[in-house]
């Protein structure tokens, strides 16, 4: 039982890390630009498709990944230039409509370009296999790589946000964007940078999961909703909040699905327990979100303080 718990906890952390990569950029976009972007999930999907394509072209996943990242960045910048920069001044409803339209376009777009059938990317030789944990317990090496890469990115982001001038502007922007603009900072360029970088992070997450999930149209939609839950729990505009909430959501979701039915078996008969457990497990994170909101309407780490 403990071994299962350990494995599932690691899976939960790995899932949480991925959610964090998608959420980190999005929470800044929400916080600084006050822009509701529904299309962030499709950037994750596009990242996965880029990784799949470039891996197939070059025959090497790491090389494919190295090309996919700047491609995702470029893709984000193009979207920013074509669409998002025209939405900053609009109300939330316009933003919802335009980015909803963008989801439709990109989901259909990948179907047209890559076909509706799922694509798969083989785990590179170098990163395949398992590593021993304790005793006979093994864990896939590639998942360890994902966790490590994600943690490294998180540390990098932390350094960027807390110890650089751009980071200072980001933090100030999440609290009071007009003030940053009044300081003579080119807020438009800052927005562009944040958006492009956020797109690249989401694309990075998509690229990293390409070898372990199937790459298919609509794969970003579910992730988008989970990302929203993460951002709501963590507090809009807070990268730190996004990290804590992402790991929390990853763990609760993964452990809930495995151990929900097991725990329930203690109080009801096995078949009812597994039925109830399977029904309730997917709802756990939403219940968690509702609970957090009930006590802290601005999330765990509100960037704007008590006033927001």
């Amino acid at each position: 039982m403990f071994n299962l718990f350990l494995l599932q906890a690691l899976n939960g952390v790995q899932f949480g890390i991925l959610l964090f990569l998608v959420a980190a950029g999005l929470t800044l976009i929400f916080g600084i630009m006050d822009l509701i972007n529904l299309a962030h999930g499709v950037l994750y999907m596009v990242g996965a498709y880029f990784a799949a394509t470039f891996t197939a072209l070059t025959g090497d996943f790491l090389l494919g990944l190295a090309i996919a990242l700047p491609a995702a960045l470029l893709f984000g910048l193009v979207l920013e230039f074509l669409i998002f920069r025209h939405l900053y001044e609009r109300d939330h409803l316009d933003q919802v409509l335009a980015t909803f339209g963008l989801i439709l376009i990109l989901n259909e777009g990948v179907k047209i370009v890559w076909g509706a059938a799922p694509m798969s990317v083989p785990i590179p030789e170098l990163l395949s296999g398992s590593i021993p944990l304790i005793g006979p317990l093994q864990y896939p090496f590639y998942r360890v790589v994902i966790i490590t890469a994600g943690l490294a990115t998180a540390v990098g982001l932390w350094l960027l946000v807390n110890h650089t001038r751009v980071g200072m502007l980001l933090r100030a922007g999440a609290v009071n964007a007009p003030m940053v603009s009044a300081l003579g900072v080119d807020i438009r360029r800052l927005f562009m940078l944040v958006f492009g970088f956020g797109a690249m992070l989401a694309g990075f997450a998509g690229a990293m999961v390409a070898p372990i999930l199937s790459v298919e149209p609509g794969m970003g939609d579910g992730v988008l909703i989970l990302t929203f839950v993460v951002i709501v729990i963590g507090g809009v505009g807070s990268v730190r909040g996004a990290f804590v909430a992402a790991i929390l959501v990853g763990l609760v979701d993964t452990l809930g699905r495995t151990f929900g039915p097991i725990v329930l078996r203690a109080v009801m008969d096995p078949s009812a327990a597994s039925q109830t457990g399977r029904t309730l497990a997917p709802m756990l994170i939403y219940i968690l979100m509702a609970a957090v909101l009930f006590f802290r309407p601005s999330g765990l780490f509100p960037a704007k303080g008590a006033a927001a």
């Binding site: 929400f30 919802v96 929203f228 839950v229 909101l293 009930f294």
Partner: peptide, 24 residues
Amino acid sequence: RTKGVYFIMITLAFGQMAYFFMVS
């Protein structure tokens, strides 16, 4: 209890909660 982008995201999340409830 919330406003703005929060409200949009939360209503979306609750909608998905109902969706997943029916799926499972």
